[in-house]
């Protein structure tokens, strides 16, 4: 126990990297999810096809392979090396963006057809229709599954330890284990607490956003949507068919 202050100190040295990787990954995920999600709904077969290749390619392979590929193989092919943290953010974003695209697609499609027809009847342009009618309603549907996805992303950020990013997990494995070999329980106990707190923060922010997005539509956040998202988990974006 007497080593606790040092252990906490070393682990918190890794905190900025974990937070930056997660926030960067989340930002990239949001952008890619919306873009790819809307492209999946495009009327052009080619656009849909190309987007499908991205989505299935990243959903179908292991995140560790993607990380190693971008960090070790890409430099050989294009001639420049990405910084480890940057490569990590790119992979976290690309991978979770592929899952997020399905969330966005599903949420947009879940908006009742009458809403489209109403928007057309009011002669809103396609862009106005999307921005002012469809997306505000779709966003409410998206937030609970995105909460799961972002927590998944936070957890995935631990694999950056494998490409030398000095984030929390790497600090525990490479700095603390060799030096405080007798305190392994304490080391990983504190590590678990750090991730739990970060995950709780993500949920807190997402709940707040859920409430805001629902209030905008004059609704209250739905417990059912949250429960469904929890059962569907990080991968089953279609929801559990019950």
């Amino acid at each position: 126990m007497e080593n606790l202050p040092q252990i906490v100190g070393v682990l918190s040295d890794g905190l900025p990297e974990t937070v930056i990787a997660t926030l960067g990954g989340v930002l990239l995920t949001i952008i890619l999810s919306i873009v790819a999600g809307l492209l999946l709904l495009s009327s052009s077969r080619t656009v849909r096809g190309v987007t499908r290749v991205y989505v299935e390619g990243f959903r179908g392979t292991s995140e560790v392979v993607q990380l190693f590929w971008i960090y070790f193989v890409l430099p050989v092919l294009v001639g420049f090396q990405l910084l480890p943290l940057f490569a990590g953010i790119v992979v976290l974003g690309l991978n979770h963006g592929a899952y997020g695209a399905e969330i966005v697609r599903g949420a947009v499609r879940s908006v009742p057809r009458a809403q489209y027809e109403g928007a057309i009847a009011l002669s809103l342009s396609p862009a106005q229709r999307m921005r002012r009618v469809i997306l505000p309603q779709a966003v409410v549907e998206m937030l609970p599954p995105f909460n799961n996805l972002f927590i998944q992303l936070l957890k995935s950020s631990a694999i950056l330890a494998l490409i030398t990013v000095p984030e929390v997990t790497r600090q525990a494995r490479e700095v603390l284990i060799p030096n405080f070999g007798a305190d392994t329980l304490l080391i990983f106990g504190v590590t678990f607490v750090i991730y739990l707190v970060l995950a709780a923060l993500i949920t807190l922010v997402m709940r707040l956003l859920e409430r805001m997005a629902s209030a905008r539509l004059g609704r209250r956040p739905s417990r059912a949507a949250r429960a469904a998202a929890r059962a569907a988990g990080p991968t089953g974006t279609e929801g559990v068919a019950v």
């Binding site: 927590i151 936070l154 957890k155 995935s156 950020s157 631990a158 694999i159 330890a161 997990t169 525990a172 494995r173 284990i177 392994t184 990983f188 590590t191 678990f192 991730y195 739990l196 995950a199 709780a200």
Partner: peptide, 13 residues
Amino acid sequence: STPLLVQVFFLFF
């Protein structure tokens, strides 16, 4: 809510 990698290290160490 915590990474699988950390859990694996936990079991291993």
